[in-house]
Amino acid sequence: MATKAVCVLKGDGPVQGIINFEQKESNGPVKVWGSIKGLTEGLHGFHVHEFGDNTAGCTSAGPHFNPLSRKHGGPKDEERHVGDLGNVTADKDGVADVSIEDSVISLSGDHCIIGRTLVVHEKADDLGKGGNEESTKTGNAGSRLACGVIGIAQ
């Protein structure tokens, strides 16, 4: 089992970053940390998408990683996509320092995120509470600013 993974985020604009993942036990939580720069100040949706395909930019990554066919939600919700990591918060300089621990994603097994795409979005994720159909699919997080395929790390 891989215990570490990394993702280099890039987009068409100024947004870029490096996100690290570490899972010490196969059924334990995954620590997610790193930094994203070039964002507007505020909240930005942060999700693992189904495919590791960036051939047409971030759009070819498909929908959120959702092997259990659930509705979109927040990272602490029972009803959520596996890939729903909530929001990252950018400061006035456009930098989001990421520090998350998640017990639904994994670096092995059915919820493995390796080979899938991590995406940072234009807007805040409403965590499935926006009151419309799009909220239950995407959290109304808007366009995909930057993305990268999650790969095994040393």
Rank of each mutant, 00 (worst) to 15 (best):
K129G: 06
A61G: 04
N27Q: 04
V95W: 09
V104A: 08
G148V: 00
E78G: 13
V104C: 10
I18S: 13
P29R: 14
Q16K: 14
Q16G: 14
H81G: 01
A153T: 07
P75L: 08
G13Y: 10
N140H: 07
A2K: 15
G86E: 04
P29I: 14
I150H: 00
A2Y: 07
G62E: 01
D102A: 09
C7P: 01
D93C: 14
P67Y: 15
I150V: 07
I113G: 05
E50L: 05
G11E: 15
G74K: 04
L118W: 02
G57V: 00
K10L: 14
K123E: 12
G45A: 05
P75A: 08
S143E: 03
G13C: 09
H121L: 01
R116S: 01
V88I: 13
F46V: 10
V32P: 01
V119A: 03
K10V: 15
I36N: 02
D110M: 08
E79P: 11
D110A: 12
G142R: 09
P67T: 10
K71V: 05
L118D: 02
S103T: 06
K137L: 12
P75F: 13
V30D: 02
A2F: 09
E41I: 14
K37P: 07
P14A: 05
T138A: 05
V119G: 00
G86Y: 02
A96D: 05
L85F: 13
H44D: 03
T3S: 11
S60N: 06
D77N: 09
G74L: 04
A56D: 08
K137N: 11
K92V: 06
D53H: 15
I114K: 08
K92W: 09
Q16S: 11
L145K: 14
A61L: 02
L39C: 07
K123V: 09
D97G: 14
D77I: 06
G131V: 08
S69L: 09
W33I: 15
K31Q: 09
G38Q: 10
K129T: 12
G83N: 01
E122P: 02
N66Y: 04
I100L: 13
G139W: 02
S143I: 14
L107T: 07
E25W: 04
G42N: 04
V119N: 03
K76I: 07
V120W: 00
A146G: 04
V15T: 11
V8M: 11
G115C: 00
I36H: 00
A141N: 01
V98M: 04
Q23F: 09
G52D: 00
E78Q: 08
S106R: 13
V6T: 08
D84E: 02
G151A: 04
F65G: 00
K24E: 15
S35G: 11
F46N: 04
D77V: 15
A96C: 05
I100P: 04
C147T: 01
V6F: 10
T138Q: 05
A5F: 11
L118G: 06
F65S: 02
G45T: 01
I100K: 15
F65T: 01
I36V: 15
N20T: 06
K71L: 12
L43K: 15
V82W: 11
D126P: 01
T117H: 02
K4W: 04
C7I: 13
E25F: 10
W33E: 12
A61M: 01
G86D: 04
L118K: 00
A5L: 13
D12V: 11
L9E: 02
E79C: 13
A141Q: 02
T55V: 05
P63H: 06
V48C: 15
D110N: 14
V8G: 04
G115P: 01
A2V: 07
H111C: 10
C7L: 10
A2N: 13
G142A: 10
L127Q: 06
L127F: 04
